[in-house]
Structure formats: structure tokens, C-alpha cells
């Protein structure tokens, strides 16, 4: 079955079995393996992507349901090859990752938060990432990274977290 969607700004036409999840389509059909398959039943948040401006779980959407959606994956966050977004850079600086498996999900969930909320409180940050599991960091440095990114974005003329660091 056909499904036309936009992925990281590019129009894509998929022709997949209806039972294929958006997660598997991104990874196996499009080679975008930065979206990680964790629990594959909507618990861990590792597969979080942005769909029409909102964080969603790619494992709980069928690729055919994604027809017409505008999807951003981790591959679409950096402004250019070899660069990092402000948020990604903050993750590096505060050591907000260890094994990195959950990281792309956190980055996308937090990207949506920073687009919508200029100076998020700690509670707002915690709420925004409460659906993402990390088994390494204990979350503290992830929260610090998002706070750091929010502070840096506050000094810029744009609130688009995709911008270069």
C-alpha cells in the first residue's frame, strides 16, 4: 500500500505492507536508523519522532497512517552535515548520554519542547521527557542539557533549536 509523507523536508513515497510501523519504514525502507527500536510497543520512547510538529512514537503509527504527515527524525535535526543543533551540542557538553540508545528520542522530544516554550521550567522539562526512558544517566544531565540549550537559544534571535550551535 502506498504512503506519501515528508521526511526531513523530502517528499517520500513508500509502498509497504499495511502492518509495517513508521519506525520500521524509517529504518528499513529509508535507512534512517537513527530512530531507535526499543520496546516496540510504546513504552520506552526511543523511537520518538516529530510528526506535524508534535512528538510521537514511531512504533505506534503505521507507515500507511503516516500518509500526509511531515516527519522529522534525528537525521533532520542538525542544520548541516558535520554540525549539531544547539540542543545536540548541549547534550555533548553536559554528558547527557552514555550508551546513547535513548538519545535520539530525547532530542526530538526536547526539540518540540524548546520550540513551544521559550524558558521551560524544570517541571516542564521533566514533563516533556517523562515518556522517554534512559537507563544510564539518571536523567539529571539530560535535564541540564535541555536547560543549557534553552538558555543559549534565549540569547539568539530565533527560537528554532535546529540552528547551529
Amino acid at each position: 500500500m502506498k504512503s506519501e509523507l515528508t521526511v526531513n523536508g523530502r517528499k517520500i513515497e513508500l509502498d509497504v505492507e499495511p502492518r509495517m510501523s513508521l519506525l520500521d519504514a524509517l529504518r528499513d525502507e529509508l535507512g534512517l536508523v537513527g530512530t531507535h527500536a526499543g520496546c516496540e510497543h510504546g513504552v520506552c520512547g526511543a523511537c520518538t519522532v516529530i510528526a506535524d510538529g508534535e512528538a510521537v512514537r514511531a512504533c505506534l503509527i503505521l507507515a500507511v497512517q503516516a500518509d500526509g504527515l511531515d516527519i522529522t527524525t534525528i537525521e533532520g535535526l542538525a542544520p548541516a552535515r558535520g554540525e549539531l543543533s544547539v540542543l545536540q551540542d548541549s547534550f555533548c557538553e553536559t554528558h547527557a548520554l552514555q550508551c546513547g540508545y535513548c538519545t535520539s528520542g530525547f532530542l526530538l522530544a526536547a526539540t518540540v519542547l524548546l520550540r513551544r516554550t521559550e524558558n521551560p521550567s524544570r517541571a516542564e522539562i521533566e514533563r516533556a521527557i517523562s515518556g522517554n526512558l534512559c537507563r544510564c544517566t539518571g536523567y539529571t544531565q539530560i535535564i541540564e542539557a535541555i536547560e543549557l540549550a534553552a538558555e543559549r537559544l534565549g540569547h539568539r534571535n530565533t527560537n528554532e533549536p535546529e540552528g547551529a550551535a
Partner: peptide
């Protein structure tokens, strides 16, 4: 609503 699951779930 804030008690219902998490943001990503409430978005769908």
C-alpha cells in the same frame, strides 16, 4: 489530562 500517560501518547 496531564495525568494521562505522556506527551507523545497524548499527541496521538
Amino acid at each position: 489530562l496531564p495525568y494521562v500517560a505522556h506527551v507523545a501518547i497524548r499527541n496521538r
